[in-house]
Design a binder for these strands. Structure first.
Length: 753
DNA sequence: TCGACGATCGTTTTT
DNA sequence: CGATCGTCGA
């Protein structure tokens, strides 16, 4: 293996194959290249069988990329090389060892919406309305347990988390788990904890896997949760050849359970661990790297790396202060048009935002300017109602104990089986201690046994038809191609007809989606050795990469501008990057602001990720006023802007328009008033910066309850409520027209009347 | 059983 | 503002 092109640290990372290694790889430091070379080195030079290597990633995209790069590097057939996501790996293990845990190998995987449905059912069973307890709270609670590696009945003596068993949420959790078990289903979290349970309860099974996988690699290690860490620890306990690669500064999924302790405590967990740092950045200009380094250095939760680069200094970062969100979108579009005129390909340009909703305005303006773009992420194909419906049919075929799927389709299309009838059938299932499907199946097979369930002739015949259809498909599922089974389901269930005859203007689009689902299935058949409905279901629940994302590489012209959330941008790079909406309450998001310092640090990492995607040029834009939740808000520039030292940027702000003087945000001398923007907001805010000046350092609440105030946009009002002091002061105002609104005093154009 | 209409409430989303 | 949800009424 030729490793002469690697730097010294990278070489060490490739060659140190024995014992635990943690590679802290900064943004753009050649992380994937190193990882891929390391695997190639194992196979080619050390002659390790691909069968003995397991590489775990988070996304299917990362797994695919790694596999492709390795296969182009080595001679050997890497068919048996396992490069896969944590979840796929666990699903595979659990399918082959299903019997140990009382599962059946055709188990269904529930996604978040199905998880929610089960939680709702349990809450309603307890007579708890979703208003009293939000299903999300329960889901969050359960996810938290699972992220920590908990499964029902786990021995907690060695666990590093605690459980209050008298907690009603714990009861909900237990019932939820029981419910999933009955349905022969697992959710994302229990795919991981299921394997932990398997390994803990059956050491001989664990030993088999330990013996097989002599070399373990974990990518994006900063995003692992505690459960995944446990899994890694167990698998590598014997060989101790574990190599994890991550960057604590790019940990942006803590809200999904990623635990930064996995990085910070790695050395404690693996006492003989070797820590390597990849600190040379090959991606970005010096300006960008140094600025980003300054920003991230404010975080306390980090191991600490010092990134550097040999790349040229590059252009200044540009911070653009826009009058409002429309002007921001307009600026970005115009700039992109300019870049295009300078022969910069669209595909080298990306626009990032904190939340998906922010894409709309930007899209509008890009369209106006005839700039081709694609939105990465957004509405997922497999989350569409009609797709979910059809997949529910498929799920029932694959796993008839999946009562949730069955109840979803039992009356879709409408068969006259309403909530009441369904309730009766479910009651009967509970009485008989069997699944909903078994009741239906028996009811159709021997109706005389179920005379006590009073059903109309119409309902009976409808159920008969449904059950017969499902049974026919089940019988032929071994001999008939999945796509043919799908077609049969689609048409004989009446779903297609139902859409066709529907006058709903959306049903045309729905039909197209179902055709797309069909072609996805055909495509799946063509690219898999042993395609089954089960494996198709698993693939689409565990791999959400949309088809269009894969097609982009084929694009051989200028391509398209990429629009995405910053989360979606991780791992990518672009020559020209726009980070939009750099305002307080947007980025950092208002939600993380009340989480305190932890929240801010995660947002800062997000900001760091955003900055370090840029290779040549970085534009950061923000709007003075933004339409948010239906009202115009004045949030002020993001604190992260002030964390970039002045020498790295030029701050441009509007001149002319209705901008009032006295603006003080870009306080430095590198502010350039060269950027003319007239407002075309219908209701142009009269900008009263004076109040901002006065309020910002106020030692006590400026606006007390009951005070009469004037808002430059909304007029006169009375303060209803006030909280926080100084910069944190928030007030709610009742205006003379009766409207009630809340403001962050610091930025609201409000004065005492 | 279905639809229409208010009330509600707003992150991020690898799997 | 807008999607989503639950509650009514037919």
């Amino acid at each position: 293996m030729d490793i002469s092109g690697l730097n010294e640290q990278q070489k060490l990372a490739v060659l140190k194959t024995d014992g635990p290694v943690m590679i802290l790889a900064g943004a753009g430091s050649g992380k994937t290249r190193t990882l891929v070379t390391r695997i190639a080195y194992l196979l080619e030079d050390l002659h390790i069988s691909p069968f003995q290597v397991l590489a775990l990633t988070f996304s299917n995209k990362a797994a695919r990329e790694m596999r492709e790069r390795i296969s182009s590097m080595v001679e050997a057939d890497i068919g048996s090389l396992q490069i896969t996501t944590f979840h796929s790996f666990c699903a595979r293990v659990l399918r082959s060892e299903a019997n140990y845990l009382g599962l059946s190998k055709n188990f269904t995987i529930y996604d978040t919406s199905e998880q929610k449905a089960v939680v709702k059912a349990i809450l309603s069973r307890h007579g708890v309305s979703t208003k009293e307890v939000s299903p999300f709270e329960v889901m969050y609670y359960m996810d938290d347990l699972k992220n920590n590696g908990h499964y029902p009945g786990r021995d907690l003596s060695s666990a590093d988390y605690e459980i209050e068993e008298s907690d009603t949420f714990f009861t909900y959790y237990q019932q939820y788990e029981a419910e999933l078990h009955k349905a022969n289903a697992l959710d994302f979290g229990s795919l991981i904890t299921g394997v932990i349970e398997l390994f803990e309860k059956f050491p001989e099974v664990l030993k088999r896997y330990q013996d097989r996988y002599k070399y373990l690699l974990v990518d994006e290690y900063q995003d692992t949760n505690r459960a995944q860490f446990e899994l890694v620890r167990m698998l590598s306990e014997k060989s101790r050849n574990v190599c994890v690669v991550g960057d604590e500064d790019q940990s942006i999924y803590s809200w999904r359970g990623a635990d930064i302790r996995n990085i910070l405590d790695f050395e404690e967990m693996f006492s003989d661990a070797k820590i390597l740092k990849l600190e040379q950045n090959y991606r970005s200009s010096k300006n960008i790297i140094e600025a980003a380094t300054q920003v991230i250095s404010r975080n306390s939760q980090r191991k600490g790396k010092s990134m550097w680069t040999d790349n040229p200094h590059g252009e200044d970062i540009e911070i653009i202060e826009c009058l409002n969100d429309k002007k921001e979108a307009e600026f970005i579009s115009n700039k992109i048009v300019e870049l295009d005129k300078a022969d910069k390909p669209y595909k080298e340009i990306a626009v990032f935002y904190r939340t998906n909703t922010q894409s709309r305005l930007i899209e509008d303006y890009l369209r106006k300017c005839n700039v081709p773009y694609r939105v990465v992420g957004g509405v997922k194909f497999y989350e569409r109602k009609e797709v979910k419906d059809l997949l529910a049919y498929v799920r029932v075929v694959v796993n008839d104990r999946d009562s949730l799927a069955l109840s979803r389709i039992i009356n879709v299309p409408a068969r006259g089986v309403g909530a009441t009838t369904l309730r009766k059938l479910e009651e009967e299932a509970i009485q008989n201690n069997c699944s909903l499907w078994e009741i239906l199946d028996r009811l159709v097979a021997s109706p005389e046994d179920y005379k006590h369930i009073r059903l109309s002739a119409k309902v009976k015949s409808a159920l008969n038809h449904l059950v017969t259809l499902i049974n026919e498909i089940k019988v032929s599922s071994d001999s008939v191609a999945p796509s043919s089974l799908y077609e049969k389901l689609l048409h004989e269930s009446g779903y297609w007809e139902f859409l066709k005859s529907s006058k709903d203007y959306e049903s045309q689009a729905r039909m197209e989606n179902l055709e797309e689902l069909s072609s996805a299935l055909v495509q799946f058949e063509q690219s898999n050795d042993n395609p089954t409905l089960m494996s198709f279901l698993e693939t689409i629940t565990l791999d959400t990469t949309t088809k269009s994302e894969g097609e982009i590489d084929e694009e051989r012209d200028n391509g398209e501008v990429s629009l995405m959330t910053i989360h979606g941008a991780k791992g990518l790079e672009f020559h020209h990057v726009f980070v939009s909406g750099a305002e307080e309450n947007v980025f950092p998001s208002y939600r993380s602001l009340d989480e305190g310092e932890t929240g801010i640090e995660e947002e800062r990492r997000l900001f760091y990720v955003a900055m370090t995607r840029a290779m040549e040029k970085l534009y950061i834009t923000f709007a003075q006023g933004r339409m948010l939740f239906g009202q115009l808000r004045f949030n002020g520039p993001s604190r992260f802007l002030t964390e970039i030292p002045e020498k790295f940027y030029r701050w441009r702000k509007p001149s002319g328009g209705t901008q009032t003087s006295g603006q003080s945000w870009g306080s430095s001398d590198n502010v350039i008033d060269d950027f003319n923007q007239d407002s075309n907001y219908d209701e142009v805010p009269v900008y009263q910066v004076a109040s901002y000046e006065e309020v910002v350092d106020a030692p006590k609440a400026k606006f007390a309850k009951g005070a009469k105030v004037v808002h430059s946009l909304y007029g006169e009002g009375t303060v209803l409520d006030s909280s926080g002091i100084g910069k944190e002061e928030k007030i709610s105002i009742k205006f003379s027209d009766g409207a009630r609104k809340k403001f962050l005093v610091k930025f609201a154009p409000i004065v005492l009347a």
